[in-house]
Nucleic acid binder design. Sequence first.
DNA 1: TAATTAGTAGTAATCATTACTACTTATTAT
DNA 2: ATAATAAGTAGTAATGATTACTACTAATTA
Lengths: 135, 135
Amino acid sequence: MRYSKQREAILRVVNASNVHPTAEMVYREVKKEIPNISLGTVYRNLNALADASQIKRISIPKDVDHFDHRHVEHYHFCCTKCHQLYDLPGSTIHQLIHRLEQEESVRITDYEVLFYGICQKCQKGKEENYGIKRK
Amino acid sequence: MRYSKQREAILRVVNASNVHPTAEMVYREVKKEIPNISLGTVYRNLNALADASQIKRISIPKDVDHFDHRHVEHYHFCCTKCHQLYDLPGSTIHQLIHRLEQEESVRITDYEVLFYGICQKCQKGKEENYGIKRK
DNA sequence: TAATTAGTAGTAATCATTACTACTTATTAT
DNA sequence: ATAATAAGTAGTAATGATTACTACTAATTA
């Protein structure tokens, strides 16, 4: 993979973000720096970066793909009320992976743990929707 | 939700399947019984059944949605070689959920645990692709 | 048994994502 | 360095899974 300022900017934006951005969100952000960047370029590079394990693609039912700079191990939490995607800390999964590899004879190379529920803010009745539409 | 023979057949097909069928697969199967059923009807009912927690929608990056009759608690395993989706047994997650609810002040109502790796068959070099195309 | 209204078939539309094409730019071999 | 080469890009068209729409059908109810 050869260098390009577009990919560098895209990776920088994903790394700097704390909201698990969608391709569209990354596009809008990178546009500030490279105004004529193409949405296709953003998609192509997000996929390339995910394939190279530099970032992580998160697939959520009834939602567009999100991307995450997975620097520390964690799980994801999707609030079913405001549809905001949060991080949850955790590393419990490793023992589980080890056991499953032994018992099920599979080789596990990656994982995604996604919880659904009501986030703290929404429990307090202070939810906002963040303009995220559900299909 | 009122009764319809279409929804009944769709639920029956999902329940009888052990391959986490896609909407298209359910459609092809139900068509044997109700030849003029519409693909839109299958989608609508799969969504309705998922919303009613009778089945579960599984979202996988770069793949179409799959559906699962979640009768016993388990995790999912997606082989990165043959792209087949398998079940992995497990119930370890409950302690984790309880701890996260306490520590993070969220209310968790559902979860999805998806592992990636190489399945037993593919480790033995006997993989098939099952005609599943990656975009 | 008629009235109501959810459900359906069939088709058109949507929209996130990918593919394509001509052009540009990073890397390489002379 | 500089030309060759091949990966990357912008812009736009195409794709394809999913949803929306419309006129019709059938399950529930009063």
